[in-house]
Amino acid sequence: MKNPNLLFRRTHLYLGMILLPWVAMYAVSTFLLNHGEHFRPRPADQQWRLLWEKDYAFEVPPGNDALRDAARRILADHGLSGAFGVQRQGQRLVINVQNFFNPARVTYDLVGKRIRAETRRHTAPEVLIRMHERTGYGRGGLLHDLWAFVVDLFCVTTLVWVGTGVYLWWKIAGVRGWGGLALGGGFATLLVLLLTL
């Protein structure tokens, strides 16, 4: 493909074909976030449902540094995995396991030596927003890192779409004026908004 015009067109197109589901997902989830007042979960959907509860003894080391490893051990002991956040709340350890469809909350009572796992009903808007907000590497295995890689790919691709899009616009002499107006209008609108927000 020696013609740069064709190369840019195909790059623009094929990257789009790969990332179609992500573009659609980010679009719909952005709409949900922008109209959050209409899509907030009802209190009934927020309630946690008990999965299991049992006796369990585990020495949680003091300090926050070892907390992550301790939480990972606790989850592994109970057949749970995935990206998580952990918090010490008084005499309890609360581990939130992130999952698109079935987020789990594991609460370990450090004094009573009891552990319980709960889950929550999921709604389509919540799932989409979880997908929108998931970023970062090193949070729970190969597939999690693969998601983060696709996020990188999406961001870099967006920059490539902008670059190739501007190039392809410039190559069509008949639309330079209107295109310039659209591009300049976009930057002018952004600047005015940034200065007045």
Binding site: W169, A182, G186, F187
Partner: peptide
Amino acid sequence: MYLALFLTPWM
């Protein structure tokens, strides 16, 4: 194209 050009700074 025009929609993309206008939204370039946001993208």
